[in-house]
């Protein structure tokens, strides 16, 4: 989930301009814009450090300082409104080598994780990662949960991680949290979490041909009807297929 609301998406402007500094150069931009839109307004064409524009992909990590404020802020450019006097810089990604692992060869315990990421033993609980996280997660708590062999908690705490790497930039122990968390979630998904039995049941039903007739009806629907049906289902209505004779469409 994106952590910030996206009310700035509206196109109406009040005419107020603010000054932001992009790579050290000042630009006058409308105060309603997000950092990302301000960059584009200023004439930059973004080909790196931009992705979904919806706060999910974590590509647009932006580091900035504000006027008369010593604090270093980290946010997603697509989710944060510009403020007067912002000094902005974007980090397209955080350098990190992702180790290769085969999930089937691993056990779900913290030793498996330390095997690939021994640097997590350097965590001193300084919490700099938490202060940097634009998703308002606590990477420190998740890393420490791994140290306690509580992988379930680590997976839950890191569930909303968008892998933007802001934590890894601030970490004095040089941990690449997002890679660590991905391994934790995979291990938990594979070995800890309850298997979704209904999924296996459904696969069996499909393989037994229980939905073949319905599928034929769907394939035979004209495009307009199919669109209507899609909208109805998306609005939460149960699937009700129109009565049709199988095979009539060909």
């Amino acid at each position: 989930m994106p952590s910030k609301d996206t009310t700035t998406e509206k196109n109406e402007t009040t005419g107020n301009l603010v000054t932001v500094y992009i790579m050290g150069k000042p630009y006058e931009v409308p105060s309603e814009l997000t950092i990302m839109k301000a960059q584009e307004y200023a004439g930059y064409r973004l080909i790196r450090g931009v992705g979904c524009r919806g706060g999910f992909c974590g590509a647009c990590t932006t580091i900035y300082r504000k006027r008369e404020d010593y604090k270093l802020y980290i946010d997603l450019a697509c989710q944060t409104k510009v403020e007067d006097g912002m000094y902005l810089v974007q980090i397209p990604f955080v350098p990190a080598e992702k180790p290769q692992w085969n999930l089937e060869d691993l056990e779900a315990n913290s030793d498996s994780i330390i095997h690939f990421f021994p640097e997590i033993t350097r965590c001193v609980s300084c919490n700099a990662c938490t202060q940097a996280c634009p998703q308002n997660l606590s990477p420190m708590r998740a890393i420490q949960a791994i140290r306690r062999n509580d992988l379930k908690m680590a997976a839950d705490l890191s569930f909303d991680c968008v892998s933007c790497g802001a934590c890894s930039v601030r970490c004095p122990a040089e941990i690449t949290h997002y890679h660590v968390f991905q391994l934790v979630r995979r291990l938990v998904g594979r070995y800890v979490q309850k298997r979704a039995e209904h999924t296996a049941e459904r696969v069996k039903e499909i393989e037994a041909g229980e939905y073949d007739a319905d599928m034929d009806i769907l394939v035979g629907l004209p495009e307009e009807e199919l669109k209507e049906l899609f909208v109805r289902i998306r609005e939460g209505n149960p699937l009700q297929l129109p009565e049709r004779e199988v095979g009539k469409h060909d």
């Binding site: 913290s110 030793d111 330390i114 095997h115 021994p118 640097e119 033993t121 350097r122 001193v124 140290r147």
Partner: peptide
């Protein structure tokens, strides 16, 4: 830390102690 030979065998207490004393 990437050159620890017997990492699988070592308890966390050993890796942590060495990492905290010898890396920073």
């Amino acid at each position: 830390l990437k050159k620890i030979e017997n990492l699988e065998d070592l308890p966390q207490i050993a890796v942590t102690a060495a990492a905290q004393k010898l890396t920073w």
